[in-house]
């Protein structure tokens, strides 16, 4: 009987490793940035390329940095939510236009609405790399002192916003 259990034992061992391996996926690992100062940047404004906009302009505010691109289909999913947030003036949102072309990005905002206080161009994706962006969209919540408090990978869902992000935003805004 025991020898017929050997295959099962082998399988359980492999299974255990696969299960642990799954947990190691880099996408699931919390960003090492949480609790650290956000990388600083100064980039050209999407709507007025000659004027610059940088992290110091948001000092003293709680704000969202939303990484998006016109070529990103999943960005469309979260976009109505961002537009709503902007209308209610819940929190200022800065858009980091990642590896995109200016005319396409502007056309996209015209079509779907512009939720951004300011949108900046990160054409070569350098700032995205500084922020450790794995894919688009990603959203960072940054507090008054310029420290990253939360990072959301993928499109923000209503649920994620209401359950995870909004309470944190309220708390940070009070402090």
């Amino acid at each position: 009987m025991t020898k017929f259990l050997l295959p099962l034992g082998g399988f359980i061992a492999i299974f255990a490793f696969l299960f642990i391996g799954l947990g190691l996926n880099p996408r699931e690992v919390p960003s090492p940035f949480i609790g650290k100062a956000a990388p600083t940047f100064e980039l050209g404004n999407l709507h007025r390329p000659d004027s610059r906009f940088g992290t110091q302009d948001m000092a003293g505010k709680v704000w969202l940095l939303n990484v998006w691109a016109s070529w990103c289909v999943a960005c469309r999913d979260e976009h109505p939510l961002l537009v709503d947030l902007a209308k209610q003036d819940t929190i200022p949102i800065v858009g980091l236009n990642y590896k995109d072309k200016q005319d396409q990005a502007l056309a996209w905002l015209k079509q779907f609405g512009n939720p951004y206080r300011v949108a900046v161009m990160d054409a070569d994706g350098r700032i995205g790399i500084d922020f450790g962006v794995y894919g688009v969209p990603e959203t960072f919540l940054i507090d008054k002192k310029g420290i990253i408090r939360f990072k959301h990978i993928g499109p923000i869902t209503k649920k994620a916003w209401e359950e995870k992000m909004l309470p944190l935003v309220r708390e940070l805004q009070k402090s």
Binding site: P32, F33, G132, Y134
Partner: peptide, 9 residues
């Protein structure tokens, strides 16, 4: 990505 993450840590 791992290398960069290590450096950041």
């Amino acid at each position: 990505a791992h290398a960069i993450e290590q450096a950041r840590k």
